[in-house]
Structures are given as structure tokens and as C-alpha cells.
Design a binder for these strands. Structure first.
Lengths: 107, 107
DNA sequence: TCTAAATATCAACATATCTTGATTTAATTA
DNA sequence: TAATTAAATCAAGATATGTTGATATTTAGA
């Protein structure tokens, strides 16, 4: 029950669906760039990323103070099917702001 | 967004997972037999069946005062994968009590 | 049409989840 | 080690969802 319900619960939120879509589209991104691109409060973003990670959808790699999130690969059948479903949704993605590469984040 | 989020929300509840598992295992069953078999309060059962139906997982057929629910077929890829996932869960199913066929329900 | 049985819906409360701002932790650099 | 930046966690209030008992609806039969 555990894993299944956790992954379904993770999928059951518009913010997290957007995050999955974002990372699926733009690939590995650091938290501060997501924050800038999605105009989302830091604690909120961090919370949802954690939920997605704990549910097996995301992986994190730390590089210094930055944390880079990306979609875990390979995903199992169910999670993959969910991601597929999300690809078909009519969600408008904001442009990616890569602050981290230029002037730094300074949020 | 609508349909996808609705179907995910429907999957995001232990009671509804149990109901899907039950109907997947025993096939078409009337509400009063589910009520007896699962020892579940009527309004609660009715609520969850409605949510599953509205999310595209179940169909209903009325025969007199009885309502027979069953898993809709065919299911789309995502819902089908979810059902598959549910089949692997370690859920103990109660035996099926077919009151409707014998003495009637009289709940 | 009155009654009864099966099911659906409603209202009130309980519980869970999300949002926000504040605080804490971790890593880097002076 | 002190200061700074990025990210994680916490606490409180707001919102959504589930549970229950009561009521309404639907259908069948006397």
C-alpha cells in the first residue's frame, strides 16, 4: 500500500504536476532557477520537491549550496504512465530563467 | 487538467482502492452486497462509488432498486495501469456476501 | 397511493493537506 | 570563525476531503 499510495498522493496536486512538467521539459534544474522561473515561494517549492522525491519521481544532486532536481530515470511503469499523461495536459510553462549561471540567485 | 486530476484524486484514498480491488476481484456487485461484505456505512460507500464512477473507473447499472457497480471496460492506459498496480497491493479482501440473491438485503 | 427497501444526498464535525512567513541547517568564502 | 547564500524545516492558519447520522429520492409491490 505504502509506495503506491505515496506516489498517487504525490500526483494529486496541481503544483506538483506543474513541477513534473517543468522538469520533464527543461531537464535538470536547480531550486533557485525553478523559484525564479515559476515565481514560487521557496518553502512551498521545497516542500513539493521533497514530496515528489520521496514518492520516487525525482532525484537530487547537490553541487555546493545548489540542489539540482531532475526526473528520475528509469521510472517504473505506473509512474511513467502518469508522466506520459502529464505530457498531454494543457499546461503553460513559463520560460526558464537561468539566474544561477549568470549573476547568481540572490533571492 | 480536469480528467487527469480527477482520476488521480479518485485513486488517492484507501477506501476507494479497496473498492476497486473488490470489484476487480468479485466483478459486478450490488451496493447492498458490498455494504454487507465490506461492513461499510451506506452513505460512505455510496459517496466513494460515486467518486470512482465520476472519475471513469466504474459503471453502474440499475435493476429495480438495486444498483450494480462494476469496473468499466475498457479502461484507458493510465487507469488500467493504476488498476494493475492495485492488483499487486497486499490487501485482504473480505468474502463476498450475496444477500441480494438469498434473503434480500434488509440493511 | 401508501409503504417499504435500496440508494443517493446533505449538514456538521473531524482529519488531512496546502500556503505562508519565520527559523534552521548546510555549504562557501572572506 | 563570521558572514552570506541556498535550501530545508517548522508552526499557524486556511482550505479541502472524509466520516457519520439524518433526510431525500427512487423503485416495487400491496
Amino acid at each position: 500500500m505504502e509506495i503506491y499510495l505515496k506516489s498517487v498522493a504525490a500526483l494529486n496536486d496541481e503544483t506538483r504536476v506543474l513541477l513534473l512538467r517543468f522538469l520533464d521539459h527543461y531537464g535538470e534544474t536547480c531550486v533557485c532557477d525553478m523559484q525564479a522561473s515559476l515565481d514560487m515561494i521557496q518553502s512551498r517549492l521545497s516542500r513539493h520537491l521533497k514530496i515528489l522525491k520521496d514518492a520516487g519521481f525525482l532525484r537530487v544532486e547537490r553541487k555546493g549550496t545548489w540542489a539540482y532536481y531532475s526526473i528520475r530515470s528509469p521510472l517504473d511503469r505506473f509512474r511513467n504512465e502518469a508522466l506520459q499523461e502529464i505530457r498531454y495536459l494543457d499546461i503553460e510553462l513559463p520560460p526558464l530563467k537561468k539566474l544561477s549561471e549568470t549573476e547568481g540567485c540572490k533571492i
